[in-house]
Design a protein around this nucleic acid. Structure first.
Lengths: 334, 334
DNA sequence: AAAGCGAAATAAAACGATTTAGTATGTAAA
DNA sequence: TTTACATACTAAATCGTTTTATTTCGCTTT
């Protein structure tokens, strides 16, 4: 069964397509359509269950009411939660979200941008990776709103919403030091993005400010796409070979692997060994003992992203790039 | 800057739009376009970076190469993992996924179906809830492929992929009984979907088959949309007021809440008190002691869904509805 | 009665692709 | 020489909307 078109409605109501279109789009008054006709047409639309074809509409108007969301991995709880919040908020304002995961693969990220471009999404929300600067710049040059979140690309001038990774990391290390820890390790990833280097820098700075010498041997960089088992082995090696009394995990999935590693070598978390994880996770509250974590205010981040996007969409001219750095919360669980 | 259209390419190459279209769509040979022209046009497309406007293409061909995925909640790890797998597999076959969460809200689910319909998605993958039968039936009547997963709606005849919830539940209870447990509780939700009632039925049947009387007081039905704190209080009440030596949690988020509750009342999991959770979760492996869980084979489920969808998309005629019941795996962690 | 004007409605172009039904040309078969 | 047919290519219709420009009509005004 073919679905109804505006033409079918026009025929049924015995008016022109134009008239129906004006009524659908709330321009009836403005275009001085008579009350009687408005009523008649609305009734027919109601009864027939007609819904305008969004594809035709998009083709004509050039916008899709779709926002593209490009993230690292939808199955990571940080991203899936943010996605859910963004989806909710966008939905309430009449926008749909399409999301897709890059898996930190530059080619896939580029492909996704092209795909979204050919689908004429109205705006892009991207958690970017290095190597896509040019592609993003092209989007911007074409006048598309683009918001980065979680991570930033220094050479691209567009708005950014993210947590204060540097300070979050700094404070965690400071709290270790306040507890009297001296040999503080950092387990991080080797992906080259601002958010990760900021976390690394905060670690360094906190040590230096407290007169502790930075030791590269206490920093473990895990390769992004490797098997979890290998990660666990590397973390075990770190703890077995070095004297360490505190560790900051730079992402929640690293922390999960780390906890597994600690369990395997039976290293207890407690008085003389402390752990903090970046990004909270359900497992941390439940763990015995409970694991301290840096919480990013997801709700605030999502809200900020949507606000920026909608501002850009509603204003014709280009707005200056804004940077929103949102403070994190260190939840110490002991 | 306006993006290029097929017309621009045609002008540049000094051929007709038709010719360009044939070449883009790989019909050049079939339509006997000369090798020289093919080369020339391809070169121009390459150099200019032209990408066909998918919206125009969709309008004309009537299909979008988009599959709509309607789930309960993308931030639930079961769904986000499935989503990721489906996305991956679909992507490799040239399909995009748009997903959206219903939050178990009938109106939102209906709205989503309409939204996807007006966007002309090629197929629907739905984890359905009661109350949307008519809407789905309309989709089917219009010839749209619809696949249910995780849950089924008995009165709608369409393909379904899901785990063997009844047996999973049955086996869990049987394993409790084999360990000598007698007072076995079930913590489940009050949402009225097949998958949840099947889990309940499996619980009942296993008890009966072992000569244990079913006791409604040992079954706690948690209201779906309530605050987690309330859930925890209810679970605490259950354990404090009844003599219970084993419990099956019917979803992973209930298990998470349950573990929190057990921690609060300091009830230890071990020899004389056993726990199994439906759907595995990272927290369970890490928990002390480790928590047993029923694993659904996500990869298999995703693969089955995609296969069914693609079959339906490639065959013109309607195929008979298929039901794929996939066995689960009970992982006992002690 | 002609001109002017506002109200009410519409015809037709446009968006950017696909596809049907051609046309023009050269060559082989009758 | 005509017919047939393959080759190489294209004009124009079409998908379902939005939107610009235009028409039609009745009513005032001069």
């Amino acid at each position: 069964m073919k679905s109804l078109s505006i033409k079918d409605i026009a025929v049924k109501a015995n008016v022109s397509i134009t008239t129906v279109s004006f009524i659908i789009n709330g321009k009836a008054k403005e275009k001085s359509i008579s009350e009687a006709v408005i009523e008649k047409v609305k009734k027919i639309i109601e009864e027939s269950g007609y819904k305008p074809n969004q594809i035709a509409r998009s083709l004509r108007t050039g916008n899709s009411n779709i926002i593209g969301l490009i993230i690292e991995d939808i199955s990571n709880s940080f991203f899936s939660r943010i996605a859910r919040l963004i989806e909710d908020k966008a939905y309430k304002r009449g926008y749909k979200i399409i999301y897709s995961s890059t898996e930190n693969n530059i080619d896939k990220a580029k492909e996704l941008i092209n795909l979204f471009k050919s689908r004429k999404v109205d705006a892009y929300i991207i958690s970017p990776i290095k190597g896509i600067e040019e592609d993003v710049q092209m989007l911007l040059d074409d006048g598309n709103p683009v918001i980065f979140f979680d991570r930033n690309l220094p050479n691209v001038e567009t708005s950014y919403v993210g947590a204060d990774h540097f300070n979050a990391s700094y404070q965690s290390i400071q709290s270790f030091i306040d507890q009297g820890k001296k040999n503080i390790a950092l387990v991080t990833t080797d992906i080259n993005v601002a958010q990760i280097t900021e976390r690394h820098d905060g670690y360094k700075k906190a040590l230096e400010d407290n007169g502790i010498k930075y030791d590269d041997n206490l920093v473990l960089k895990i390769h992004f796409n490797q098997e979890e088992n290998e990660t666990i082995e590397q973390i075990k090696a770190l703890f077995e070979n070095k004297k360490i009394d505190a560790v900051l995990f730079a992402t929640n999935y690293l922390a999960i692997s780390g906890l597994k590693a600690l369990k395997q070598i039976d290293k207890k978390i407690g008085g003389d060994f402390a752990v903090i994880a970046y990004d909270d996770h359900e497992a941390f509250e439940l763990h015995t003992p409970r694991i301290s974590a840096i919480q990013q205010p997801l709700e605030e981040i999502a809200e900020a992203i949507i606000k920026l996007i909608l501002n850009r969409l509603s204003s014709k001219g280009k707005l200056p790039a804004e940077e929103l750095i949102i403070p994190t919360r260190l939840v110490l669980r002991n």
